[in-house]
Write a protein that binds this DNA or RNA. Structure first.
Length: 211
DNA sequence: TTCCGGTACG
DNA sequence: CGTACCGGAA
């Protein structure tokens, strides 16, 4: 990895926000988040460490359902299976039944499979890197980045359709999708390489509600 | 009623 | 790379 091979030889695709712009947007976004962050059951209070199990569980549920709907299900799961070991030890049928109403039952199966995989590890804990998380059942690129950032403060940025919209808005990127996707992804990625990756990710998520 | 969406799978 | 999954929202 001696040299960086960007698209300097490809005219028209090497655009990106300059560092001053990025710094300005960072400050603005974090300041906004510090004053407007949503209080969510799976979200740790400011300054406190979040529970990776809770973050993982919520992210899996939120893949397919709104915050309002997930709320009660998340509470039920946490009350019944407070940690990954408890969930791993539960009968699959119980998990599927508790999942009833959320849809995408393949994910409930993967949830259970993932819990068993994690609990089966020597450490019995979730991997704290994006790459490690990505290997687990039911965890794709988006969820791996979300958990890495929120639970472990790793420099990762989950990018879904909403984050794309927010990023495009923040950086004034007007290139229409899907053509502007690489440009937007590049901007979002720069965001992640900062000191408060978890807060950035959650700020982006919360900001969606205000756009 | 159509459209939308992370992930796994074909 | 396209499709299925399953409910909610438009």
């Amino acid at each position: 990895m001696a040299k960086r091979n960007d698209q300097a030889s490809c005219p028209g695709t090497d655009r990106g926000p300059d560092s001053a712009t990025i710094r300005r947007i960072r400050r603005r976004l974090l300041a906004w988040y510090d004053g407007n962050r949503r209080r969510l059951p799976w979200r740790a209070p400011p300054g406190r460490k979040s529970d990776p199990y809770a973050v993982w569980l919520s992210e899996i549920m939120l893949q397919q359902t709104t915050v309002a709907t997930v709320g009660p299900y998340f509470g039920n799961f946490m009350a019944r299976w407070p940690n990954v070991k408890a969930l791993a030890g539960a009968p699959l049928d119980d998990v599927l039944h508790a999942w009833q109403g959320l849809g995408y039952y393949a994910r409930a199966r993967n949830l259970h499979k993932c819990a068993k995989a994690v609990a089966g590890h020597p450490a019995g804990k979730f991997p704290d890197t994006e790459a490690g998380l990505l290997e687990l059942p039911g965890i794709g690129p988006y969820t791996a980045a979300a958990i890495a950032a929120i639970a472990f403060d790793q420099p990762a940025m989950p990018v879904d359709g909403n984050i794309e919209r927010v990023t495009a808005r923040l950086f004034g990127i007007t290139t229409p999708l899907p053509k502007g996707k690489p440009e937007i992804a590049a901007a979002a990625r720069i965001f992640a390489a900062t000191e408060r990756p978890g807060d950035f990710a959650q700020a982006m998520m919360d900001l969606v509600e205000r756009i």
